[in-house]
Amino acid sequence: MVSSQPRYELIQEVGRGSYGVVYEAAVRRTGARVAVKKIRCHAPENVELALREFWALSSIQSQHPNVIHLEDCVLQRDGLAQRMQHGCGSSLYLELVETSLKGEIAFDQRCAYYLWFVMDFCDGGDMNAYLLSRKPSRKTNTSFMLQLGSALAFLHKNQIIHRDLKPDNILIAQGCSPAGSPEPTLKVADFGLSKVCSASGLSPGEPVSVNKCFLSMACGTDFYMAPEVWEGHYTAKADIFALGVIIWAMLERITFVDAETQKELLGSYVQQGSEIVPLGEALLGNPRMELPIPARKKTMNPSMRQLLREMLSANPQERPDAFELELRLVKIACREWDWGT
């Protein structure tokens, strides 16, 4: 169904990158706040990233509090807009799919094509900005670990490998407890590099498992990439490694300055002389390297230290899967142990 009447009113721009522009918006009918990501489909790589995100989020049949929810997807051509759904057979949608598959524009370039993603509005920024603007907190660390573990288990249960987990791609929705204290909710977002696994290649009747889905395209962000990703042969265990980098950096406030943006970022690394090297790259060159976990004394108990060592193992088979990880994080959080304050 094609319409020229917009359902959403843009309020203000809240983010911009090479991939697209994000706005705070309101649903015209209800006034509810949403986030709207506008992606210009002027290049095959933009179309591919947008479709990957659409396919991943629209394949999820239920919602999870710690995974961004795709409320609506609208495909715009010039002044007309068409809602897009998973498995949609419209000619406009099929032109985008063809563009992604062929690596060249397959539609009339005289027309302006845009994809609009309508998602949860997160008013607390990303995990990086949120944590680095506040003092370290044991309560926040514990809460964020549990939320991240739950989100990743949910994604892997739904056969989705994220492939670009990092603090910049984890958003914060601010809220308050019944007592009035801050109670932030994490939302894993940015699924442009994600992969939805299928049963193809598996034995008939064998259930789909992200840990049996082998991928060969090296992608992600250097400081969070597992050793095997650098070589281009990996499974969902690469997400476990990335989460290990994030949690270690969060617990000990390990940061580095991005060379391109000069922005301070949470992330674990290895110091080699005056250079800092991503953990995955360093472990690829020296799989037996002993990581200094913890980097500071008395910042975590033995159970957490052991879990992080396993998550950051050079051998993906030694890492827990997302379901075991979620259970172990819950057990650790339920014990009395000293994070520091």
Rank of each mutant, 00 (worst) to 15 (best):
S3H: 10
Y8P: 01
Y8V: 09
E9D: 11
E13T: 14
G15Y: 10
G17D: 13
A26N: 08
V27M: 10
R28E: 13
G31M: 10
R33V: 14
V36A: 09
I39W: 01
E45N: 10
E53Q: 05
A56N: 05
P65Q: 04
V67K: 03
V74S: 01
R77K: 06
A81T: 06
Q85H: 09
G87F: 00
C88V: 03
T99S: 04
K102S: 12
G103N: 07
Q109W: 00
Q109I: 03
Y114F: 12
N128P: 11
L131T: 14
S137F: 12
M145G: 12
L148E: 04
G149T: 08
A151F: 06
F154T: 10
L155D: 07
H156A: 03
K157C: 13
I161G: 02
D168I: 01
I170L: 12
A173G: 10
P178M: 06
G180S: 08
E183C: 11
A189H: 02
D190Y: 10
D190N: 08
V196H: 04
S198G: 14
G201N: 08
L202R: 11
G205T: 06
C213L: 10
S216F: 12
M217N: 11
G220L: 05
Y224F: 14
H233G: 00
A236S: 13
A238K: 04
A242H: 00
I246T: 07
I247M: 10
W248D: 00
A249V: 10
E252L: 12
A259D: 14
K263D: 12
G267W: 11
S268H: 04
Y269F: 15
V270P: 00
Q271N: 08
Q272L: 14
E275V: 05
L284C: 02
G285Q: 11
N286L: 03
I293S: 04
A295S: 12
M300A: 11
P302C: 09
M304R: 02
R309E: 11
R309A: 02
S313G: 03
A314D: 01
N315I: 00
Q317K: 07
R319V: 01
D338F: 14
